[in-house]
């Protein structure tokens, strides 16, 4: 579904992605972790070309993202992206937020989109919040609206960029629960997160990045109990002891 071959990216002099080779299959759930500045956000932002890559090939759903001729609208419609800061449109209700892209990009009819939007908001536990504005919702609720907004496009892939990092602790679980259900339904997901409980429960593989490189990829069991690299051990000792 997603294949990186020798992908390199620079921000000016900073080499943020170094020779990335990675393949994520359909239906797979992969968790990406690593210290801040390691390039994990950049890695997933390249997948829907929120960032350009300078070298290598990145094939998503059979399309070469790097190729300028590729129809990015079509590709992006297939990829849901969830941001750390939710990024809801504050002048629209929850329902208006989730049906904007379906009606404008997918050209879905208004009443059909309306029905889909209500169903999807219900699915993330916000059936009673359709007419609320983002400012009237808690952080956890806003992030669930953002997930519903992604799902309304019926995407093949969902990307999550630290979806719970901006949330108060008591709101993290309601968002993770939605994500766990999504994973169990067979969605292809790449999740940048430090929620190791979530990684243990649903990830097929965990990817650890440092300084723009993939240091280690392993199934959760192996990743937590016998990490191969010293760097991974150090990282795990820091985030798991508390």
């Amino acid at each position: 579904m997603i294949t990186f071959s020798n992908v390199n990216k620079w921000f000016g002099d900073l080499h943020v992605l170094r020779d990335i080779n990675l393949s994520v299959g359909a239906g797979e759930v992969m968790v990406v972790c690593g210290p801040s500045g390691s390039g994990k956000s950049t890695l997933i932002r390249c997948i829907n070309r929120l960032e350009q890559i300078e070298e290598g090939d990145l094939i998503v759903d059979g399309m070469n993202v790097h190729d300028r001729k590729v129809n990015m609208t079509q590709l992006r419609a297939e990829i849901g992206f969830i941001f750390q800061q939710f990024n809801l449109y504050p002048h629209m209700t929850a329902l208006e937020n989730v049906i904007l892209a379906p009606t404008k990009v997918r050209k879905m009819k208004k009443d059909e989109a309306d029905k889909l939007g209500r169903e999807t908001l219900k699915r993330v536990g916000l059936g009673d919040k359709v007419d609320s504005y983002p400012a009237q919702l808690s952080g956890g609720q806003q992030q669930r609206v953002a997930i519903a907004r992604g799902l309304c496009m019926r995407p093949k892939i969902m990307l999550f960029d630290e979806p719970t990092s901006a949330l108060d602790p008591e709101m993290i679980n309601e968002v993770l629960e939605v994500m766990v259900n999504l994973a169990k339904e067979g969605m292809t997901m790449i999740v940048v997160t430090h929620e190791m409980g979530f990684a243990r429960e649903v990830a097929e593989r965990i990817l650890f990045m440092d300084e723009g490189q993939i240091v280690e990829i392993a199934p959760p069991e192996e990743f937590f109990t016998k990490p191969k690299s010293e760097r991974t051990k150090l990282f795990l000792s820091k985030i798991l002891t508390h």
Binding site: T73, F81, N87, L100, A101, K104, V105, R149, M153
Partner: peptide
């Protein structure tokens, strides 16, 4: 960015 990511 949210708009870009959803294909608008």
């Amino acid at each position: 960015e949210a708009g870009i990511a959803s294909g608008l």
